[in-house]
């Protein structure tokens, strides 16, 4: 078996909130304390991506999918858990040890406006990861030639290399972001909602480009998105997240044909579509996502789940392998109890 490009085990990320130490100082029962509020963004996520594979993370805002992506990219420090890139555990590498890893792992960002430094020329933006790798060993001229070649690959010309980001449209900026990620020829690209800020016609262009690049460079993607139709188009397998938990992972066809978790079903039926034939009777879910500052005990989805029962409040369901190869975290699909009752 080949080593997965990315393997994540028990990833946890919690953010302390509430400001600096002076802001949090409180007197309580005669003691001076600085209590810390904790935002539990990711609560034990496992995933693995094989070379050339595209895995998508879907879920609604606040479900932790972007945090997973950015923690793997080591923009954030993981609170606990293991992140293996190409077999190497990088979860606690320092800045210097992390630098060689960045050659294998790059990222494409959501906002085509904020993800490019407005004061840098496009050619400098594109070549920045490469320059960080090579240090002073490459001449400026050689770097610039590489930048122009990269830009050409994503559909921009040499003359545009000397411009600043504000002279480009959203779609073109996203192409620049993709060229930047490609500059070190990574094995894995983490794409955080790369098309959600773009118009539909441009979105299709970028998705096509990403698929072409995957074939050309043998890339793997971790593709974060809230848009199920985009995910269906690009992903080989999909993980559905809710409140920092992975509630279901399955191959694309399994997930879209036989969704198991009630939340997955709700997501699928809520997504608007132009295909009339696809409009399903809806799983009515009400209300909104609870705060990650105070997670509900038991199953995190029970507060909105139409099928919740006693056990859901008492016990948090674990992600369990199903007979068809998918995994679901729901008491309705508890394999041990199924086995017992059988």
């Amino acid at each position: 078996m080949t080593t997965p490009v990315l393997e994540v085990r028990g990833l946890v990320k919690a953010f302390p909130v509430g400001g600096g130490i002076f802001e949090r100082l409180r007197f309580r029962k005669g003691q001076l304390l600085a209590p810390q509020k904790i935002l539990r963004a990711v609560n034990g996520v496992n995933l693995s991506i094989a070379p050339g594979e595209v895995m998508a993370l879907v879920g609604e805002s606040g479900c932790g999918k972007s945090t997973v992506a950015k923690t793997i990219a080591r923009i954030y420090e993981p609170t606990a858990g293991e992140i293996r890139i190409d077999g190497q555990d990088v979860s606690h590498l320092g800045f210097r040890e992390m630098r060689p890893v960045r050659r294998k792992l790059q990222m494409i960002f959501q906002d085509p406006y904020a993800s490019l430094d407005p004061r840098q020329r496009v050619k400098d933006i594109v070549i920045e990861p490469r320059r960080a790798q090579t240090g002073r060993t490459m001449s400026r001229k050689a770097l610039e030639e590489e930048a122009v070649a990269l830009l050409a690959r994503v559909g921009l010309n040499a003359e545009q290399a000397n411009r600043y980001p504000h002279q480009f449209s959203g779609g073109q900026r996203q192409r620049i972001g993709i060229a930047r990620a490609l500059s070190v020829r990574p094995k894995l690209i983490i794409a955080d909602e790369p098309v959600s800020a773009l118009d539909v016609s441009i979105q299709a262009q970028i998705l096509n480009l990403m698929m072409d690049l995957r074939d050309e460079f043998g890339l793997s993607y971790l593709f974060v998105s809230h848009d199920l139709s985009v995910v269906h188009h690009i992903a080989d397998k999909i993980g559905v997240m809710y409140l920092g938990f992975m509630v279901e992972t399955a191959s694309r066809d399994q997930l879209f044909n036989q969704p198991k978790h009630p939340y997955t079903k709700a997501l699928l039926s809520a997504a608007p579509t132009v295909d009339k034939a696809l409009r399903k009777p809806e799983i009515e879910i009400t209300g909104e996502v609870p705060s990650a500052l105070r997670l509900p005990h038991g199953c995190c989805f029970r507060t909105r789940c139409p099928l919740a029962f006693d056990r859901c409040a008492a016990e948090r369901p674990a992600l369990q392998a199903q007979p068809d190869g998918s995994s679901v975290a729901c008491h309705l699909h508890d394999q041990t109890s199924v086995a017992r009752s059988a």
């Binding site: 990222m107 906002d111 990861p129």
Partner: peptide, 20 residues
């Protein structure tokens, strides 16, 4: 803004990010 995160992913040090 994401361009700072992008710089971090590119492998720049804090000092490089601040200055550049």
């Amino acid at each position: 803004k994401e361009y700072i995160q992008a710089a971090r992913v590119a492998g720049l040090s804090d000092l490089q990010i601040i200055v550049r």
